[in-house]
Design a protein around this nucleic acid. Sequence first.
DNA 1: TAAGCCTGTGAAAGCGGTTTCTTAGGGCGT
DNA 2: ACGCCCTAAGAAACCGCTTTCACAGGCTTA
Lengths: 334, 334
Amino acid sequence: MAPKTRPTYSVIAKTAGVSEATVSRVLNQDESVHPDRAKRVLEAVEKLGYKKNRVASALASGRTGLIAVVIDDDLSVFADPFYGTVTSGVSRVLMENGLQTVLMVSPVGSLEGSVAHYLESGEVDGAIFFALHSDVLVNKLKKQGLPLVITGTPHSTSDVAFVDTDNFGGAYTATKHLISQGCKKVAIITGDIGTTAAKQRLDGYLQVYRETGHVPAKGLICEGDYSFETGKALTEKLLATHPDVDGIFACNDLMAMGAITVLQDRGISVPEQVRVIGFDDSMIAQTSRPALSSIRQDVVALGEAAGSLMIAQLNGEDFEPVILPTELVLRGSA
Amino acid sequence: MAPKTRPTYSVIAKTAGVSEATVSRVLNQDESVHPDRAKRVLEAVEKLGYKKNRVASALASGRTGLIAVVIDDDLSVFADPFYGTVTSGVSRVLMENGLQTVLMVSPVGSLEGSVAHYLESGEVDGAIFFALHSDVLVNKLKKQGLPLVITGTPHSTSDVAFVDTDNFGGAYTATKHLISQGCKKVAIITGDIGTTAAKQRLDGYLQVYRETGHVPAKGLICEGDYSFETGKALTEKLLATHPDVDGIFACNDLMAMGAITVLQDRGISVPEQVRVIGFDDSMIAQTSRPALSSIRQDVVALGEAAGSLMIAQLNGEDFEPVILPTELVLRGSA
DNA sequence: TAAGCCTGTGAAAGCGGTTTCTTAGGGCGT
DNA sequence: ACGCCCTAAGAAACCGCTTTCACAGGCTTA
């Protein structure tokens, strides 16, 4: 239990017979130290089982080696594997660069929340945002010079680095596919319309209609929130107003499953009578029956891209927004 | 971009007309400061938009306010909502106590990996482990006096705090239920048998057999790894050796779904011919058709319990291992 | 051979808080 | 009134590492 006091530079320096400055140089791969001295230091480090105190190091250097991953939502969203997966991608890239990931899941809301305080307290070298509902905090932090990456497209145009999935394209492809399969009346169940991703998916859907010269009938556009229950509820409402609907594009797999559940409960067969396409190509899409056709986004790649963008910024390199392609994965439901 | 230099104690002290020591006292709720002076300090803080530098604070006080959540596996496990959910529970409790969560997902393996280095570098006040495959690092850290919590039962008996789900009881209940429904030949598809949780679930299953005086036929115990694909593969193998199996207890929902998929593909109806029960009661259990009966574990509560145990340790309070109950949720599959 | 340059190294000044040690008063007892 | 104890608040040491600055000594150049 005794919090054994760990050795410090002072001890290393003494055992190696050099100054603390030299110890620091060796431990930070400063090439200018004579190999012999460096060797002595390394031996002392080895012998004493020395581990650098990162906190002290951070204070002196101004670099903490921590990057915050901020998910602007309450913790329940973590039930959706999306965030876990994307975070894992981020984490991998950061680790390769000697950085650690600090996870924060909390509604960002105001400029005064605990997230805001934390990010401004100098404890992180940068922050990566997900599911951002507002840009105010981001803009403030940006002004303070904190390296930032946004996953998803920012609401306002600014010069913040961001990476996103091609939401528009994915939605376009899904909708187009439904129509090419003969669907005459395609509905959309959107995600949380407060996010840019949901808006872009809706745009992709509308674009298809636009090209056909039609306008989707009122009621075909159902505003959802990415949850299973909402998927069910909206589908029931949809069937009430448009019993002749023959295609549904749900903006995530969970809602798509909600739709399928309701359809099957009513004896409406999928895909014979109504075709359904989801978004995410999650595990659920693969395990469901019929297996769900879905727009795949490479979630790990998304996280990795976000991580890389952060690294680039920290190195002062140039960077461009990254938009990752999507792919339609056809299974039984459409 | 200009990394605007933030105010320090020195500035606050000057504007408030007090010493830095007093500033520190006020900002750390030391009661012994005269209300008038305290007010002056607070006003200065407010006026200057001061945010405490946590790194400096950590160095001086020896407390970083960070708790590591270590998941001993590669990042792919994050596709399983379990970890995200449990982490969110941990995070909530910690935040309420002014602590932040540092997430590390990496095979812990040796004592020399980056996780080990990080935990020994003094950057965290404590660590919470998940899916631990080995106890060596834990024991080492324990010796160094780092507060630790293990989620899941430790392999070796030691005095490390842990919280766990009643795996044994859950498995027992599931198996018992299958038999009470008339199943004569119940198979189990286990999880990664390297974890104690998987072993305990297997034990619960075996206990039911033991009580009936029988021994499960060879081949009824299928060693899995929690993945959908493995669930499918093992079920096929199972059907080959035991075509008359009439009950399957899968140690997670994903594998249960794999089993159901294979069964249905062969025209074997669930639950009429084979009853299936999963474990976790995840989203998949609710969305599948037939909906999957499953053993629910309160994952968020698990995380919260782990967080609370950590807090208790940090406060030097006593603590007991926590075992959370499970519940059988009956749906269509059994 | 003297002046000018590197180069490797040590001394020391931070980084921005926390905490111990000290001291100046104020209240109280006799 | 005098001495003692207690309290509020400042001075300064310190946490452990980084980084600037200065310096000695060896080399080059004229």
